[in-house]
């Protein structure tokens, strides 16, 4: 048994694909049409055989309520590791990304939290 997929609910798959590839820098791995929606995954550019992030359509109404509650509370849906939080923070700010938590030291970790524009807060973390 292995962990190969991680799901993230997004309010618009096309918008999400654009943000996760063009802004965050991930690479599209699979795109399988399934009627109104699609099976859509992205991977880290330097770990293309690694865990796939599934950009899941947010079609189930109760999930929208749950996602909004988390977003409004500032709670990240998931976290991505980076080599340098400060550097990514500056790069993404320049690209117009908004952050609810600026780079902050938490013990041996440095974190920041961004808005993915698809209904989620995403935490970036750097292990010191």
């Amino acid at each position: 048994m292995r962990i190969r997929l991680m799901s993230l609910l997004v309010d618009d798959q096309e918008k999400a694909l654009k943000f996760y590839t063009e802004t965050l820098g991930f690479v599209k791995k699979t795109e399988v049409p399934m009627g109104e929606h699609k099976w859509l995954t992205v991977v880290a550019a330097d770990e293309q055989d690694g865990v796939e992030l599934v950009l899941e359509p947010l079609a189930f109404p109760p999930a929208k309520t749950f996602q909004k509650a988390l977003f409004d509370a500032g709670i990240p849906q998931t976290a991505f590791q980076v080599d340098d939080v400060e550097e990514q923070y500056r790069r993404l700010l320049d690209l117009g990304v908004s952050f609810s938590v600026q780079p902050t030291a938490m013990g041996p970790v440095r974190i920041a939290v961004l808005d993915d524009t698809c209904g989620n807060n995403i935490q970036l973390f750097e292990m010191l």
């Binding site: 409004d72 509370a73 500032g74 938590v101 902050t104 938490m106 013990g107 041996p108």
Partner: peptide, 26 residues
């Protein structure tokens, strides 16, 4: 400040080691 930010602040103040100690461990 969001609920999450306030939780981060609380955790940082109450549960993490002092910055100097963390520096040694890093």
């Amino acid at each position: 400040m969001t609920w999450y930010s306030s939780q981060l602040q609380m955790i940082r103040e109450q549960h993490y080691l002092k910055a100097r100690t963390v520096g040694h461990l890093v």
